[in-house]
């Protein structure tokens, strides 16, 4: 019961700070604001000095950021703060926690990389690293080892990859014989794997929440448009053919949200359960956006209209953190094993 009230408070606070009628707010100002509001502390464990709130609280923030097409890199940030708080080997962990909860940004990759290396000299690329231009470090979560890599170190190159999605920025981080700093190793062995799983789970969950927030806004905007745009002497929204399509979208979003909030209250949810949710939520978002453009008609294809912003973000969300092909296969495999 307490958790539900707290979640609603977070929704309200986030809506106030990032109203959905001011889409795609300035990133640097947003980052300052989220730091001031203490959101980076939300999911950090209590013994590490955070608020220790559950996944539902982080999801509430990501959901609201999705609604407003938020630009601050909260998805990697909230996950790396948690990971730093839970790191087993990190030297000066307390100092790190202090830094990353007060505005220093540690990013991480949202797509699988190919970093390999002998000993501590690493080479390869981490793709889809959000906002590396404002980050001090990238968290490298490799099987067997989790570590922080300074983005200005020798052997580290950061390259921006222009995106269709205008509300986000992604970079490739390339390592060429980069030598790990032992003081920046977060965990090794089984502890590193647990940390990696946790980091990934949080980000995938966040993408599901972001998607359903965004789907809500674009459906609301579409319905409002259909109520005002007139053809044949009546609002388009009076045509039942269009009403039914909007109703179907509402059903999809409403039902997907039920799974989002129920899984958010299930701390032991498996990767397959979170991934299945992510696949579903992002596909719902993508479909709502596809329909939104068609329901707007020609104006939906213009840059001045908002439809494309959501559509582009939705398509990116589908791919980040593994797409539906990946997660659905895993869900199927596990459900098959469970029915043995």
């Amino acid at each position: 019961m307490g958790a539900v009230i707290e979640r609603q408070e977070l929704h309200d606070a986030a809506q106030k700070a990032f109203p959905a009628d001011a889409l795609k707010p300035n990133r640097d100002e947003s980052w300052k604001l989220v730091t001031e509001m203490g959101w980076l502390m939300l999911s950090l464990a209590e013994d590490a000095g955070g608020l220790g709130l559950g996944r539902d609280s982080a999801a509430a923030i990501h959901y609201e950021m999705g609604k407003a097409l938020g630009t601050a890199p909260l998805i990697p940030a909230m996950a790396t703060v948690q990971a730093i708080g839970a790191a087993t080997d990190l030297a000066d962990q307390a100092g790190w926690i202090e830094r990353v909860t007060t505005g220093e940004f540690v990013t991480t990759n949202l797509s699988a990389g190919d970093v390999t290396g002998d000993g501590d000299a690493l080479s390869g690329t981490l793709p889809a690293v959000p906002d590396a231009d404002m980050a001090s470090h990238v968290m490298l979560a490799n099987p067997g080892r989790a570590a922080l890599v300074p983005l200005d170190a020798p052997g580290v190159t950061v390259t921006e990859r222009p995106l269709w999605d205008e509300s986000r920025r992604l970079f490739d981080v390339t390592l060429d014989g980069y030598v790990l700093d032992p003081a920046l190793v977060m965990a090794t062995g089984a502890a590193a794997e647990a940390l990696t799983r946790r980091l990934k789970g949080e980000m995938i969950f966040a993408l599901a929440a972001d998607s359903l927030g965004g789907a809500n806004t674009i459906l609301d905007l579409t319905v409002e448009y259909l109520k005002t745009r007139k053809q044949f002497d009546r609002p388009l929204g009076m045509f039942q053919a269009l009403q039914h399509r909007c109703a179907d979208l509402k059903v999809l979003i409403g039902a997907a949200e039920a799974l989002l909030w129920s899984r958010a209250m299930q701390p032991d949810a498996t990767m397959a359960e979170i991934g299945g949710l992510k696949a579903h939520a992002t596909e719902v978002y993508r479909w709502v956006c596809e329909e939104a453009i068609q329901l707007h008609g020609g104006v939906g294809l213009t840059e001045e209209m908002y439809c494309h912003l959501f559509m582009k973000r939705a398509n990116l969300n589908v791919q980040l953190g593994g797409n539906a092909d990946l997660w659905r296969e895993l869900v199927g495999r596990e459900a098959l094993a469970a029915a043995e």
Partner: peptide, 23 residues
């Protein structure tokens, strides 16, 4: 893999139906 994906998609859909009825 195709069959597993279809099954996985359905399983999540059944989870969605259960979650909304429960909620």
């Amino acid at each position: 893999a195709g069959v597993l994906r279809d099954f996985g998609k359905l399983v999540t859909q059944l989870d969605v139906a259960t979650a909304i009825a429960d909620q």
